[in-house]
Design a binder for these strands. Structure first.
Lengths: 339, 339
DNA sequence: CGAAGGTATGACACCGGTGTCGCCGGTGAC
DNA sequence: GTCACCGGCGACACCGGTGTCATACCTTCG
């Protein structure tokens, strides 16, 4: 074996005096092997530092070991959490994680995804919200022969390959907390139309109000885009209502930060004059002032499970695919001081 | 060709009535081809939707088309910005991006990286700070036959494969801005010891003070870890000094947010009682109150260049590899009201 | 008109693994 | 003693591409 060249299965076979097929059996832990042979080959492998070539394996097996993560940057924290969760699962396996950020407004989105999957011959792909909500993309992935997992915020009709959080229930619990704090006039900022997560959170909000015998006053409700600026605009609307809310639930943290800015610019104190609850528990949530009460969903754990479902569909099928979120109680929501 | 099977080069060759080698020539845009033949083969390729198998190519060429991104989550925004920048460059090429988050405190860090590179037979790898500052890891990657690019915050001795921002100059300009605003008592929160970026920013801070004829008072200087909590602790130290600062430069935004918390807890108003400047321009920076004046460095652009250097070393060698950062002036730094 | 040279293409081995099948020797049943 | 059976292993083709070299044909030049 020439210096600088990686050892191959042939080198291992020659040096240990067996056929390459036997070496292959050792690598693949075939049970029909003489113990002595196995040990001999293993020692040669260790000595040479031999690592099987994944491309050659992929070629022979007609399948490879690449997992694709397709997303449109819902938020950086979430994407990174997902990546770490996937790595937790595939570390020490032969799988690798290939990422592919896309632009969901691009007219060539579907084509872009198709090219990515076909070109890399992915083993499986994982879709993140809001892409994961599009059934057409899911079908595309399946058509291309990929196993598929979707991360989402609600049960889908076809929940076979879905890992989701129960946003609806989590939000209704957040509202219950505001009610427990004595708030009765609770504002709401929805997420963008057409997003399942936005829809789930809205339903949860309504559930929570209903459970407390309250109703939503449209004067203190607004719809945002999940972005900071839209939260600020929504906050301005709610706070300029004839009878402004004493507490607001925002469908995500970024908009909650915007509401906080709107309140500050009107000279209001948070949380004294306005309690705020957000959703996501982004890094920002704990770093703004006051620290934001928010709903944390177990991104990394969910991603771990999702990856397991991709690479070990049989054994992971029994793992739960529906996750509960926690309300993180911080200083931005306090007892109602009014009335 | 059976249904459900991807077409191979053999299918294309058979149907277009040429040898597979000729098809290979078409794919690889060999110049020695009859125009008519080329067009015939191309039309068959289009008709079949043929896409070359990258694993087979990788095997035959003895090199593959995977770029590895190795990082230890410096911050989510940055990692995602880098991923997007790399994708900007490799989209529409045959390259793919494989990510591998690691833990820099793990005793098996080097082993982990080695396994990743060897197992996937990466073409090239990109190291992010603070990993990129470790020459031993850089050497490891090179030993394993990878081309390498390091992203960093300062010139290294060996800057051949480096893409860096000029933190030192950017910070000195930030200090100049504080001086221009009338501040003369300026506090400093350093990053963790042993980080090149921390060192560069510290030098830049000292440069800025010196240019204004000021000196650093150790009573209003502290060292942090780049984390929020350490910023808060540093803020407490600075603000409890006998003669507290009227402005503070923090070596990153997360610590700046911590300083802000410390100020709030002492009942101080920001920016009226204390101006703050951070570094990084994370998403949080614009969303805290007041919006944070900070240094923005062009992550995505840098990553684009870095990726180009990886996959087209010849043509990208001439591209600049040293980037300037901008001071983003927001509400957290205002004219000094004292004295 | 034949040799030389260039152009367009094909035959074949090879990259580094895996699947199939067959061979060999030992064991137990009859 | 013969034979079926089984554990352990190897020969060989094959996965889907690329490199090397040979070949057929067409010019061009002496």
């Amino acid at each position: 074996m020439a210096e600088g060249q990686k050892p191959t299965i042939n080198d291992v076979a020659r040096i240990s005096g067996v056929s390459k097929k036997t070496v292959s059996r050792v690598i693949n832990k075939s049970p029909l092997l003489n113990q002595a042979t196995r040990e001999k080959v293993e020692s040669v492998i260790a000595e040479l530092g031999y690592v099987p070539n994944p491309q050659a394996r992929a070629l022979a097996l007609r399948r490879n070991f690449l997992i694709g993560l397709i997303h449109d940057n819902p938020n950086a924290q979430m994407v990174l959490g997902v990546q770490e969760g996937i790595l937790d699962t595939i570390r020490d396996t032969e799988f690798a994680l290939v990422v592919h950020p896309v632009n969901r407004y691009s007219p060539t989105l579907a084509e872009d995804i198709r090219r990515f999957i076909e070109q890399q011959r992915l083993y499986g792909v994982m879709l993140l919200p809001p892409l994961s909500e599009r059934d057409d993309l899911a079908e595309l992935c399946r058509d291309l022969g990929c196993t598929l997992v979707r991360m989402g915020s609600a049960k889908l009709d076809d929940d076979e390959h879905l890992v989701a959080s129960n946003d609806r229930q989590a939000v209704s619990e957040a509202v219950a907390w505001l009610v427990e704090l004595g708030h009765t006039r609770i504002g709401f900022v929805a997420g963008p139309e057409g997003f399942r997560s936005a829809n789930e959170r809205e339903q949860g909000f309504l559930d929570g109000l209903a459970a407390a015998g309250l109703a939503l006053d449209p004067a203190i409700a607004a719809r945002g885009t999940y972005r900071f600026e839209s939260g600020k605009a929504a906050g301005e609307k709610l706070l300029s209502a004839a009878e402004p809310p004493t507490a607001v639930f925002s469908s995500n943290d970024e908009m909650a930060a915007g509401i906080l800015h709107a309140a500050r610019e009107r000279g209001l104190n948070v949380p004294e004059d306005l309690s705020i609850i957000g959703f996501d528990d982004t890094a920002t949530a704990a770093q703004i002032w006051p620290p934001l009460t928010t709903v944390r969903w177990p991104i990394r754990t969910m991603a771990r499970t999702a990856a397991a479902k991709l690479i070990r569909p049989a054994s992971a099928a029994s793992e739960p695919s529906f996750f509960l979120s926690d309300l993180i109680r911080r200083a931005s929501a306090i007892p109602c001081t009014k009335g």
